[in-house]
């Protein structure tokens, strides 16, 4: 606990403060910035033939006739109390999101759980054989996968496993009120398609980091001192790779929720994806704003955690040897 009082505590406090400030800026952008965009969600939805009365009526119904800063203050106050507002459909946003956010987070969480061992193993495996066929296979595979959208991979998986081989269900038909965790067969393909894309980037980062460590003077010195390769990997390579890898895992984990929105649609999985698309098409800003703020906060939290992990995993930073 003395750790938290020292340089680490100070750094953590600073990061949390920065994160909070960024979240405040984000809320401003998400609410006021969106309001300042040219165009108007109301007229856009009603079409050019709408009468001015009809437009004014709808604006009033959505509370859009008040000044933006007043609305922002109300919205922000609600968020701080844990109330993300009311949908244009009249339902409270929190009610609409309740289960679905959890379902989406389940996909992302499972994926991160698998991502850690998969990317570490594949990255280190490739790095130990730089330029060899094994490395080239892993690296090229990762480079190809990293750029392909998740929903494209998911569709490919549907073609392969559901249509071609008939092994897995093409859609995740989960009965209402039931939890997806009780239907593992329906989780396989959504998680796998997210994992393929997410691990591609992590593998590339881990491999590049491990290659540079393995080619560096530290490992050369250990080899010249007669230390075994396994010991070198354990004591010198993995500790050097971890601070970088943890950052990538955390940030990828939150980013996965974005990808999950798309993958959910491929499998008709009951996450936030459907809800979001409906809201976007209907111009239902409160719902989208709430989801964006939740994920933005999660991302900023992940960044704080990533920073903390880097400090704890790097002796020089942990002991306050340098700022």
């Amino acid at each position: 606990m003395t750790l938290l009082a020292g340089p680490v505590g100070r750094r953590l406090a600073l990061r949390v403060a920065t994160g909070g400030a960024l979240l405040a800026v984000l809320s401003l952008l998400v609410f006021v910035g969106v309001d300042l965009l040219p165009g108007d969600p109301v007229t856009a939805r009603l079409g050019p033939n709408a009468t001015p009365e009809r437009v004014a009526e709808l604006r009033a119904a959505r509370g859009l006739d008040e000044p933006v800063l007043t609305r922002y203050a109300q919205w922000l106050g609600g968020l701080l109390r844990g109330d993300p507002g009311t949908s244009f459909s009249g339902k409270p946003v929190s009610e609409m999101l309740a289960d679905r956010v959890g379902h989406s987070a389940l996909l992302a969480g499972l994926c991160v759980l698998l991502l850690v061992p998969v990317s570490l193993a594949a990255g280190l495996y490739a790095a130990r054989r730089p330029g060899k066929p094994a490395d080239r296979t892993v690296s090229t595979g990762a480079l190809l996968l990293v750029s392909v959208p998740e929903f494209v991979i998911a569709s490919g998986l549907v073609l392969l496993f559901a249509v071609g081989l008939g092994l897995l269900p093409a859609v995740s038909l989960i009965p209402a009120g039931d939890h997806p965790i009780r239907h593992p067969d329906m989780l396989v393909m959504p998680v796998l398609s997210l994992l393929l894309v997410a691990s591609a980037y992590s593998i590339r980062v881990i491999r590049a980091c491990a290659v540079s460590v393995l080619a560096g003077p530290r490992v050369e010195f250990l080899r010249l001192t007669g230390v075994r390769e396994r010991t070198i990997l354990r004591t010198a390579v993995v500790p050097a790779v971890l601070p970088v890898a943890v950052q990538v895992w955390l940030v990828t984990g939150v980013g996965l929720v974005g990808g999950a929105v798309l993958v959910e649609r491929v499998f008709a999985y009951p996450g936030v994806g459907d809800l979001l698309v409906t809201a976007v098409l209907g111009g239902d800003l409160p719902v989208v704003q709430a989801i964006v703020m939740i994920l933005g906060a999660a991302m900023l939290l992940a960044l704080v955690l990533a920073d903390l992990a880097v400090v704890l995993l790097t002796p020089r930073l942990r002991t306050g040897g340098a700022v």
């Binding site: 050369e220 001192t225 007669g226 230390v227």
Partner: peptide, 30 residues
């Protein structure tokens, strides 16, 4: 051979020592 029969000391100790290992660990590894 390495370490047991022939030891090695290089030019830059800052680059050679593992920054993630305590001195004790470095010596025990060797």
């Amino acid at each position: 051979v390495r370490g047991s029969l022939i030891g090695y000391v290089g030019q830059d100790p800052g680059a050679a020592l593992n920054p993630y290992a305590r001195i004790r660990t470095t010596l025990l590894t060797a």
